[in-house]
Amino acid sequence: MYETSYHRPTSLEEAANLATEKGDEAKYLSGGMTLIPTMKQRLAAPEALIDLRHVGELKGITVNGRSIRIGGGVTHAEVAMSDEIKSVCPGFASLAGLIGDPAVRHMGTVGGSVANFDPAADYPAALLALGGTIHTNKREIAADDFFLGLFETALEEGEIVTAVSFEAPDQCAYEKFRNPASRYAMCGVFVARRADGVKVGVTGAGSSGAFRWSDGEQALSSDFAPEAVDGLTVSEADMMGDIHGSSAYRANLVKVVTKRAVKKALSH
């Protein structure tokens, strides 16, 4: 790891000011579960690290009726274990429990995952399917407008993800088909059903990060059953292909995993 300097602000304002002061050589550090491995491999070398773990404004989960708001600094473990989230949106809590391993979940945060937008990250699939909102220290951005491409989001320099929020749907579930070695999603699908239709968020498979599968959404909105997607084809051209699976394989996974997710949602 290259040299760096560590800073520990205790408020959002202080954190944002530090970022302005240090400029583009600075990076926020939340759980460090992506950033530190990247720094160890010398793929990132920020001169300054601004630790967000001691910023109180980023903590806390609020559930108001069916509205859920999760602070950017909330860990995957806290989401997975939250009785409040489990009671209104069990699919979201169970997704968090499938991220990495217990030690990763104890440190990794919602804000870090959303800001990083790894093409196989789990939360983006859910936030797209739930029509969620990403809150920052400057504005609110709909998930559809936030996730732009591989590791690319609408965040501007120095902008901090302070929370994510969404309304719990009538039914939802997340199904994750894992790479057996890394345990990241080869394809993860979140389905969310409401009176006005079904949304399907897919991660791990697309060549430009998580996306909404609109053909699947249409089919499932008229018939919320696994067989509804049988006749559809997913374009290979938009899929990732690598040593773990070809784009044709991933295109097929989108269908298979969606069917499993629907089945799971129906069984809740």
Binding site: Y6, R8, G32, M33, I36, L49, P102, V104, M107
Partner: peptide, 12 residues
């Protein structure tokens, strides 16, 4: 809480 000490800085 269990954490990976190779993925945390001493200063953290």
């Amino acid at each position: 809480k269990a954490v990976k000490s190779c993925t945390m800085l001493a200063v953290q």
